[in-house]
């Protein structure tokens, strides 16, 4: 630990702890997952940045959406996202979750992921290089420092709208709402 950051540690130890230990859900969506094995192994060694893949969403706080999201996958993504403990951050990886990418007129691919779950940052490209994951991670550090990575708070506040969008895309959802969706909580 360098001495410059001691002040930060004393000021907001929670934030510092979160930002230097991103635990990523091992969740494969689309083709982007092919960039993850070199990223986490010795070639690019993501552990330098405190990024480790973990097996279950209950242990994780970073969710990388790696590639296009089909309608069936969206269901799994929402369930995974809701299982992760707060604070949690989402990063859309590649151009497909941003606006559909090359699947912009596909019959079974979700076009804008941020209509269904909050996304804190995007990595553009098809495919992005492993280096860009680290750029995204360092950006996320800055965002956490400045209090800008508030996707999970937005999800809680606007849960009614998110749930409405999810139901519109998937039909009836078979799990109960995570937060109350009554008229009082607007």
């Amino acid at each position: 630990m360098d001495r410059g950051s001691i002040k930060k540690w004393l000021k907001a130890p929670g934030k510092m702890g979160q930002k230097y230990s991103f635990w990523v859900v091992y969740f494969c969506t689309g083709c982007g997952i092919i960039e993850i094995p070199p990223t986490i192994t010795s070639r690019w060694d993501a552990e330098r940045f405190g990024v480790i893949p973990v097996a279950t969403p209950r242990q994780a706080n970073l969710f990388l959406i790696t590639g296009y999201v089909s309608v069936k996958t969206l269901r799994a993504i929402i369930r995974t996202y809701e299982q992760m403990p707060d604070p949690k951050y989402t990063v859309g990886f590649g151009s497909c979750p941003i606006n559909g990418g090359m699947y912009w007129d596909s019959y079974n691919t979700i076009k804008h992921l941020d209509k269904y779950i909050p996304v804190d940052g995007w990595i553009a490209g098809c495919m992005p290089r492993p280096e860009s994951i680290f750029i995204a991670v360092t950006h996320l550090w800055t965002m956490i420092d400045k209090g800008m990575a508030t996707g999970y708070i937005k999800y809680r506040e606007k849960y009614k709208n998110y749930r409405k969008n999810q139901e519109e895309a998937l039909g009836k959802l078979e799990w109960p709402p995570l937060y109350p969706v009554g008229d009082k909580n607007e």
């Binding site: 912009w104 076009k111 209509k115 937005k154 998110y162 969008n165 895309a169």
Partner: peptide, 24 residues
């Protein structure tokens, strides 16, 4: 069925996915 030639994917996308609004 979506792989038949008379299935218009663009119209379908407009009707289904583009109608869903952004949260904010």
């Amino acid at each position: 069925p979506p792989f038949r030639k008379d299935f218009n994917t663009r119209e379908y996308v407009k009707e289904k996915f583009d109608k869903i609004s952004f949260v904010e």
